[in-house]
Design a protein around this nucleic acid. Structure first.
Length: 274
DNA sequence: CGCGCTCCCTGGCCGC
DNA sequence: TGCGGCCAGGGAGCGC
């Protein structure tokens, strides 16, 4: 479900409420997610305080006062929800519940269980198996025209696959990959290594723009995204191509097409994107 | 190493 | 209304 903007929005939404709060009680309901909860999860969290909440790629990092850090990933259907008071009525798929000293409950809910909640010593987070091989942050200056040109050099696979490869650049999922390629006027089919320098420049700018726009509007949302505050944040983003098969391109009126690439659906305008 | 396919799991939606 | 099939925003693992 969530790509970088949604994860960033969750981090920013949780931060003001949970920073400094102490975890009084942990209720673990089921821990068999993609990676099972650590055996000592409840023990490690209980009585710790939240020191900071940050994002790396699509991972949320909750730094705790006891030199541990929670590494969390929302997978496709995970959500963090805050409720006032100590929530006792749980929904199906509320897998982890934390009662906080400021009288809030923090719930992790994930129907498909593709998400991850795990622990690391804070000093080792950057070396953690889930973190260490991640590529550059797309909004950092390190993600620039020359970088993209270099990392796609040996790649004959389509450019769409390349920009979704988290080893090259992080945070770009299926929706924003399609949207960025549309803005850059580049066909998702193009072999990555065949992009010219100026096309790389357009694509870098487009990726930064679609991600920044989405963060600004609070993260785009589809069916099962819920904002961290708990109200079902439902401001549907207006996409240029994503999920618009058969609808007229906003630029040239040609019907948007879809195809399969590496097992994922790609939406594009065959006239605008070359 | 690069690449694409498959699978993990549940739920929503569509067509019958 | 019920049921089966298909699809979904991510990512690891496998074989080629």
């Amino acid at each position: 479900m969530p790509e970088l903007p949604e994860v960033e929005t969750v981090a920013q939404g949780l931060k003001p409420v949970i920073s400094g709060a102490r975890i009084q009680e942990v209720i673990q309901r089921r821990g068999d997610l993609r990676i099972p909860f650590p055996d000592d999860l409840a023990e490690a969290l209980t009585d710790a305080k939240f020191k900071s909440i940050t994002r790396r790629a699509k991972y949320l990092l909750f730094e705790l006062s006891n030199n541990k850090t929670i590494i969390a990933h929302l997978g496709m259907s995970g959500t963090f929800t805050l409720r006032k008071g100590f929530e006792k009525k749980f929904r199906k798929h509320d897998h982890l519940v934390m009662y906080l000293s400021n009288d809030y409950s923090l719930l992790y809910h994930d129907p498909r269980r593709f998400g991850v909640i795990t622990l690391s010593d804070t000093k080792d987070v950057k070396q953690h198996a889930l973190i260490k091989d991640l590529g550059v942050e797309p909004l950092d200056d390190a993600f620039n025209t020359n970088y993209l040109k270099e990392v796609v050099a040996g790649r004959s696979a389509p450019i769409k696959n390349a920009i979704m490869d988290q080893h090259l650049v992080v945070g770009v999922g299926n929706i924003y990959a399609a949207e960025a390629l549309f803005l850059a006027k580049i066909s998702p089919r193009r072999a990555a290594k065949k992009l010219t320098l100026s096309e790389c420049e357009r694509l870098v700018k487009a990726i930064k723009r679609v991600l920044q726009d989405a963060i600004k509007s609070g993260g785009s949302t589809l069916r099962d995204y819920v904002r961290s505050s708990g109200d079902s944040g439902y401001f549907q983003h207006k996409f240029n191509v994503y999920d618009r098969e058969g609808d007229a391109c906003f630029v040239c009126k040609t019907p948007i097409e879809s195809m399969r690439q590496a097992g994922r659906t790609t939406f594009f305008c065959m006239k605008c994107q070359k």
